[in-house]
Amino acid sequence: MIFNRFLKPFLIIGGLITMYAGIYAIDPADALREMNNLSYDPSYVFLIRHWGIMVGLMGFFIVMAAFVERWREPIILYSFLEKLFMVYLFSSNHFNPETAYLNQYFIPFAVTDITICLYTLGYWFEAKPSTVDYQAG
C-alpha cells in the first residue's frame, strides 16, 4: 500500500512542482528563456500566459486535494488526463522531424508528468477492490 501511504506527500510535492508553471503566466519571456532555453514571441503571449495559469492552477488544486479528500478523485483524474496528454505530445513529437529538436527543452516537464502518471496508476491499482473483497461482502 505504498501509493496510498504516501499519497498526501505525493500530491503536495507533485502539485507544487506543477504549480511552478504559473511563472509562465506572470513572466512568459523570462520563463521561456530560463526554463526552456527558447526565445519569446510576443504574438503568443495570450496562449503562453493562459497555459501558465491553467497548469499553475492545476498544481494548486493538486495540493488542495491532499487536504480536501472529497476533491481528491476528480482532481487526480483530471490531473492524470492533462499530464498524460503532455506525455503524448512529448512522445509523438519525438517522431516528427519538424519538431523533434524541441523535445530537449521539455524533458523536465515530460519526466515530471510521466512520474505523476505512473504514481497515479499505482494509486488506482492499489485502490481497486479485489475479487476477495466482493466475495466477503
Rank of each mutant, 00 (worst) to 15 (best):
S39K: 13
S43A: 13
T120G: 01
G59L: 10
V132T: 14
Q135A: 13
I107H: 02
F95D: 02
N36D: 11
T99C: 02
F85Q: 07
T120N: 04
I107Y: 06
S39D: 14
F109G: 15
L7K: 05
Q104H: 08
G56I: 07
F109I: 15
I2L: 11
V87Q: 08
V55A: 02
R49M: 07
S39M: 13
D133K: 10
F109D: 14
Y24Q: 03
I62D: 00
F109Q: 14
V55F: 02
Y78P: 10
T18P: 11
L57D: 01
A136C: 08
M86W: 11
Y40K: 07
S43H: 08
I107M: 09
A31Y: 05
W124D: 02
G15R: 07
V55H: 05
D113V: 01
Y78L: 15
A25M: 14
I2K: 09
I26S: 04
F106Y: 13
L81K: 00
T120F: 05
V111W: 00
D113T: 01
P42M: 01
L7R: 04
T18A: 10
A65K: 09
I76H: 03
S91D: 01
F109A: 14
P9C: 00
M86S: 11
I114R: 09
N93Y: 00
G14W: 00
P129A: 03
T115L: 15
G15C: 06
Y40E: 07
F60A: 08
R70L: 12
A25N: 11
S130I: 02
K83D: 05
I23V: 12
N4G: 12
N93C: 01
E98T: 11
L89D: 07
A127R: 15
K8S: 00
H94M: 15
F90A: 03
F106M: 08
P129T: 04
L38W: 08
L7M: 07
N37I: 09
N96H: 09
V55W: 01
T112R: 11
F60L: 15
